[in-house]
């Protein structure tokens, strides 16, 4: 019995469930920022677990898998930060019932630089 293959595929399954939940969050959440919260967190962990599981199944691939995991874990938050910043600057509002928006005060006084 190849126990490591079973372990790897179970981890992959868990990861794929997180990916699905992330996509569900992107679909269901009321405004852009909340969608981004669901999207970024769930897809990052989902991708990490999915890839790790496959890396355990095919242990000769583990080097490449680790590099992809590192890259995703580093770039995913950066890209969603850049997108959230742009969206807020563009004036996309928070959903109704939001408590505070302290960034607005800063942006109205922001000196635009070249």
């Amino acid at each position: 019995m190849e126990w490591y293959r079973i372990l790897g595929s179970i981890i992959t399954l868990i990861g794929s469930i997180f990916l699905f939940l992330g996509a569900l969050g992107v679909f269901r959440m009321p405004d852009l920022y909340n969608r981004m919260q669901a999207g970024t967190k769930a897809t990052t962990l989902g991708t990490i677990l999915t890839l790790l599981g496959i890396g355990i199944c095919h242990y000769e691939w583990i080097g490449q898998i680790l590099v992809i995991i590192m890259f995703i874990a580093l770039t995913n938050p950066i890209s969603s930060h850049a997108l959230a910043r742009a969206a807020h600057f563009k004036g996309i509002p928070l959903t109704k019932g939001s408590v505070a928006d302290k960034l607005k005060e800063k942006e109205s006084t922001e000196v635009e630089v070249d």
Binding site: E2, R5, I6, G8, S9, I10, T12, L13, G15, S16, I17, L19, F20, G22, A23, L24, V26, F27, T50, C57
Partner: peptide, 19 residues
């Protein structure tokens, strides 16, 4: 393992469709 990976593929595909 193959069956589990197959199920994961369905979950991932469903996620892609929601996105």
């Amino acid at each position: 393992p193959e069956i589990l990976l197959q199920i994961s593929t369905y979950f991932v595909s469903a996620g892609i469709i929601l996105a």
